[in-house]
Every structure is written in C-alpha cells, then in structure tokens.
Design a protein around this nucleic acid. Structure first.
Lengths: 223, 223
DNA sequence: ACCTGAACACCGTTCAAGT
DNA sequence: ACCTGAACACCGTTCAAGT
C-alpha cells in the first residue's frame, strides 16, 4: 500500500529535509516564541514535526545545539564600516551587540550563559583590536582594553536583558511600589537614592555607561 | 512494633530537622561538589537523605530554592571597613565579589544567571553609593556609576568563572594549540595578537580592568 | 543515509493519604 | 505539622531495528 505513511525509515522524498541549519533556525524560533527556559530537544523536534532523536543526526546533543545557536546569534552582528574615529567606531560595536540583543532578547540571554570554545565569534574581537591598534595601542594593551570593553558591554546588556521583556519601562505602579520598598530598606544610601534605583531607562543607562568607558579609553590613549 | 522505621508521616523526633536554611546549605554543597549543571530538587533531597517532595514544605519549587542560594551567596560578601580613600574603598568592594566568586565558583556562575527580585542583595549597592556620595557625586550620578561599576565587575568575573575551573592557568599544550589556531584564524588582528589572546592571567586581567574603571571614576570626580 | 520504537534514567510538581 | 506513595507530564540519550 503506497498511501500509508512510512512511520519509520528514510523520509519520503519531498519531505522537508532536516539539516543542522534548519534545526538551529527552529531552535531560535522556539526560543523567541517561548523563552530560553522552554527550550529542549524535544520541543525543537515538535516544532519541526519530527522525532527528537532524529536531531542527533545533525547535532551532538543539546549542548552542541545551544552552542550552535549562540554562534548563530553572534554571526548576526552587523558592524557598519569604520569611520576612522576611534570613539565612534567603538560605539558602533557596542551598539551592534545591543541591537542584536534587542532583536532577540531571549537568545541573547542564552548566549550570556555560555562559554564559546569555537572561533566563530571572533569577528567582534578582530574589529575591536583593529580599532584600538589603529588608535595607537600596543597589541598587548589592545587585548586588555578589548576584554574590558567587552566585559563592560556584556555586563550592561546582562542587566538590560534581565530587567524584563523588551518593554521600555515597567508599569508605574510597580515602579512606585518598588521605590517605597527601597526607601524603607533600612539602608541609608539606598533609601536616599530610591527614586533613581527604582527606575531604569535602558537607553540613558547604556549611553551613560558606554560614554564612561569611551572616556576612559580616550584618557588612556592620551597618556 | 516500634522498631520498624516509619516510612511515612511525621519524622521520628531526633531525626535531622529539615529547614529552609539546611536545604539551602545542602544545595550549595551539591553545587560545589558536582557543579551547577547537576543541581536539582531530587539531587538535593538525595544529599539530605529525604524525599524531594519534602522540600516543598520549605521552598516554593526549584526557582525559589535557586534564588535563595543566590541570596546566600551574596550575603557571604565581606567588606572591610571603609578607609575614606575612594579608590581603595571601591577596589575593596570589587575584590569582595571576586573573593567570594573564587570561594564558590560554581555558585557564582549560578548567581550570574539569575535576576534577583528580592532586596537581600542590596548591601553592596548601599556600600557603593555611600562611597560615591562621599566622594562628591550627586545621588543620580552615583546610581549611574554604581550600575556601571557593578556591570563591569560582573562582566569580568563572568569571564573569569567561565574560563575554566579555579586553576590559575590552563596547561601549556592547550595554550599553544589555541594560540596557533588563533594565528590561522584568517582575522588579521586576532592573528597578530594571538599570543596575548591565547593566555589569560586572571589576576593581571582583573587588576587591569579594575584600574581602568577606577581611573575613569577618578577622572569623572575631578571634573 | 536517515528515521523511529523501545527503553532507561532522569526531571519538577500535585495531591491525597498517612502518622 | 510534616512526610511520602502514587501519578503525571516532562526531559536527554542509546541502540537496535526498520526502509
């Protein structure tokens, strides 16, 4: 009987071909739709209409898949051409990370929890080194500064991503209840600064932190 | 028969009392011994010689337990008395975080993945604000700088923790194979800096980054 | 070459039943 | 008041059997 669907064995030709790439793409869709916490081989397989074990033909288990997703995330970074202005070019890299993180906040949260062993994510590193070298730093110093800049940017984005979903600001009721809780925390300086602490303007906060770092880089270059 | 152990119901008096605190402590032991990835309600319960469901009498599920562990981690931060020197006092806070992270690296990795909603972890915030206010910053500015400093420190520690277990440096063979891989990456500046990129001196890197940040704070104060 | 059935050893969590 | 048995709906992963 030819009409009975094959429940096992090689898929009928014409069926959607599985591939490492399509699996990674499906994983990103699951992450975007349901959040990082909901990701699993079985969930991705369901999304693809396939058995979870089939994924093992293209992917070396869950960890390998998540690494691939992190690489896919990083490979989506888009840097504009360099202008030659150190400050502007460094800023562009930080904003490339931030734009990507806003694009796919759940995937960004995943990336920040993973240590990539592969060399796929080196493009930003090369860019940063290029800029710092062109500005006059030694290779050794440029590596140090590059690491610090990346640490600071990732640290800032970590907070931004975890501060809640994309929505710019939380609702006013939550803010003011948080503010009064801070004011009654018993910690004098926390209480004093409760107004500012209860609020978080993503754009302003990022701009402030980035300028802070860029000022420090400029000062170091001027020495 | 009184000798038959009760397999159900209230535990015999004299049995080790379960409590939220003992559960958190046991969780930290499991994390230290087997790593964050191995933590589960069932594993913690096994460690305590108890059924996993019993934990629900003290803890509101796994997420709540992990939040409690994060709080416990933060409450273990030890700050020395303030000296009055801004730079030295800021440095002490950064090192308090770092010491704690080295003490319990696996727990530190957990903390960095969680967004704490509670107010238990505000002591470092208050300390930082106190120092910055005493140095002459406005409350608004001190909040911005405090956030930036924390982001940078956490970003640096994130890398340190993920760079591998406590061991200072990886074995030379791995370093040199990594170096040659970087040299042949096809990225010119990565290749040029391969020597430095393949190495990571935790102490030197942290000191560099921290000095960098502290210089920037000092520059801002001097304006 | 690629997929799945059967199977195993895990999870978190609810709820009723026990003492 | 506190614990567990039974139960459910999940996981990742191996391996042999299918086409």
């Amino acid at each position: 009987v030819t009409t009975a669907p094959a429940k096992r064995g090689r898929p009928p030709r014409g069926a959607t071909q599985l591939s490492r790439q399509s699996i990674v793409a499906a994983t990103l869709e699951v992450i975007d739709a349901k959040g990082v916490a909901e990701v699993s081989l079985r969930a991705v397989a369901r999304h693809l209409g396939v058995d979870a074990k089939s994924l093992y033909n293209y992917v070396d288990g869950l960890d390998d898949l998540l690494d691939a997703v992190a690489e896919e995330f990083l490979s989506g970074l888009r840097f504009p051409d360099r202008s030659g202005d150190t400050r502007q070019d460094l800023r562009a890299i930080a904003h490339a990370f931030r734009d990507r993180a806003h694009d796919r906040p759940e995937a960004a949260a995943l990336v920040m929890t993973r240590q990539l062993a592969s060399f796929e994510g080196l493009a930003p590193t090369d860019r940063l080194l290029a800029i710092l070298r062109a500005a006059g730093m030694s290779t050794a110093e440029s590596v140090h500064v590059m690491r610090l800049v990346l640490a600071a940017v990732i640290g800032m984005l970590r907070r931004e991503v975890s501060v809640g979903p994309i929505s710019g600001t939380a609702d006013p009721a939550a803010v003011s209840s948080r503010e009064s809780a801070l004011r009654e925390s018993g910690l004098p300086h926390v209480a004093e600064a409760a107004h500012a602490l209860a609020r978080f303007d993503r754009d302003a906060e990022f701009d402030f932190g980035l300028d802070f770092i860029l000022d420090a880089v400029a000062a170091r270059l001027a020495r």
